[in-house]
Design a protein around this nucleic acid. Sequence first.
DNA 1: CATGTTGATGCCGTTTCGGCAACGGCTATA
DNA 2: TATAGCCGTTGCCGAAACGGCATCAACATG
Lengths: 312, 312
Amino acid sequence: MRFHSPAIQYFHAVRRTGSIRAAARVLNVASSAVSRQILKLEQEVGSPLFERNARGLTLTTVGEMLARHVMNVLQDLDRFRSDVASLSGAWHGTVSIACIESLTESVLPDLIAAHRGRARRVSFSAEVKGSSDVLEALSRGEADIGIAMALRHPPDLRQVALKRFRLGAVVAREHPLARRKTVTLAQCLAFPVIHALPELSIYHLLQPLIAQLPATPEPAIQANSIDLMRELAARGVGVAFQTQLGISRLSRDGQLVFLPLDNAGSPVWSDLGIYIRAERTLPAYTESFLQELVRELGERERQENAAYPQIA
Amino acid sequence: MRFHSPAIQYFHAVRRTGSIRAAARVLNVASSAVSRQILKLEQEVGSPLFERNARGLTLTTVGEMLARHVMNVLQDLDRFRSDVASLSGAWHGTVSIACIESLTESVLPDLIAAHRGRARRVSFSAEVKGSSDVLEALSRGEADIGIAMALRHPPDLRQVALKRFRLGAVVAREHPLARRKTVTLAQCLAFPVIHALPELSIYHLLQPLIAQLPATPEPAIQANSIDLMRELAARGVGVAFQTQLGISRLSRDGQLVFLPLDNAGSPVWSDLGIYIRAERTLPAYTESFLQELVRELGERERQENAAYPQIA
DNA sequence: CATGTTGATGCCGTTTCGGCAACGGCTATA
DNA sequence: TATAGCCGTTGCCGAAACGGCATCAACATG
């Protein structure tokens, strides 16, 4: 099932590894073979594909164009393979997911477990990254499905779905705020607060709102891990901010309380986008999981909006 | 610029020509070479790609899957080529169009002429077919852009735009009906009528309406050419039916009069769809023409709706 | 039954590919 | 400043893939 010229595969490996010798190691061939294929490609395209730096190779503009084409070819080859396989009843392959941390607590593990229960032969590969890294991994063909904050996405990605979740304060059961139904940011800032570092997108959601308030005297903790922030909140260290997605288990246990933020009478939304490469048709098993993911996130969005109706 | 294994090209040629020897002639190679590449492909896929009939080859199910992949690869290769070319300022390539007859009188020639004026190096290839043949040619990768009646399209095609045009009666200036603003079908059937044969989609638009009327005593002419029907109407032979798209020049000259059909108080619509293969990214020059086409058809739709407002 | 066309196969020269070893260029480190 | 390590490239050579030619059996057509 290797009916594409080695040049394509070699080019792809070189692009990923950033060096001919490294690509040769991955491909289990001599580096000279790789070098020659790249040179041949460049001759046929009529333009250099890489810039040779002392430390390795970097794509030129034409190289990036070819990379796009090669990615399309190899991903579509993958789909073809899975199509043929599913014809003989065998559903196997790997769904590769890049997502932000909010999903790791319950959404993703639940979904993967459920899907594995139905389709045992489908493997998963999940990588947790920042929102922009998720999009980049998708663009570079390192993941099939991306879940990230819905910022502006590059044109080579397609937003399959957009779900909005309420951003809220997360406090321990014993916290003074825990009795309220909703809170304002000002009310939270009266207590010790666990802030997100700029690498988390929550930071960029809250920062403009915080900037409008008078300076906060309360000592604050800063962290770059949703997980850590949640656990800190559970120990009563302070007030953390995130969507309800990340605390569903602990809030079910009653240890944590989720209080939707009230920003001058309106909710603070955190938009979650599901992305795939635009120029691509997904293998059947990936498409299947994608649809479950969209459905599940839609379901959570619906549940949450039912639980916390308009502030008014 | 031939960095894909010969097997792919050979397979593609065999699929198009339906025979190994014919493909070999097209490719300027020995038929044995083609045969061997096909056999090798089948061995690597692990399943026959063609059924060997005495008269040539037909795709199997797996073969059709591979055909889809190969089409994606080759069309994307085309796009890559044009991307590289446009980098050095050279815009050239061929836009291949499959469309129904209604467009040939003014829309398509106007557009192509205008586009050629701006981009001299872009060639065009236009083929006039029936609506379903247009979609099929598109599916088979024999055309880049398809314009057809908007029936249900196969899932491998994407409807880029949908424009509605009023179906109307077309009569010569001297025809008794020519003074009216609109006509009903019953009024038309009082005169000799030029009917479309079932191979034209107008037939399928009008037939259900005609069936509701009492039998028509008037002798009728049947034809399968929009062009012919129009010319017959211009000679006063009878009443023809089509959209205004096909008669814009003659109606500008005042020789023909277009009378929107009034079907129990509501217009009769003819929906025109613009299609491309779904799994595809168009070359820049094709994309550019496509956008002009969509814009132009939208413009005509707008003009027409302004000229003939609701019947009411 | 004769004829023409189809795809497949054996043989063989040509082309392409890959592995090995070596070279020059560069960086980092001692 | 010398050295070690990594980089991409190139010459050489055996192995594999490819293509052309002639031929075969199978089938359709007349």
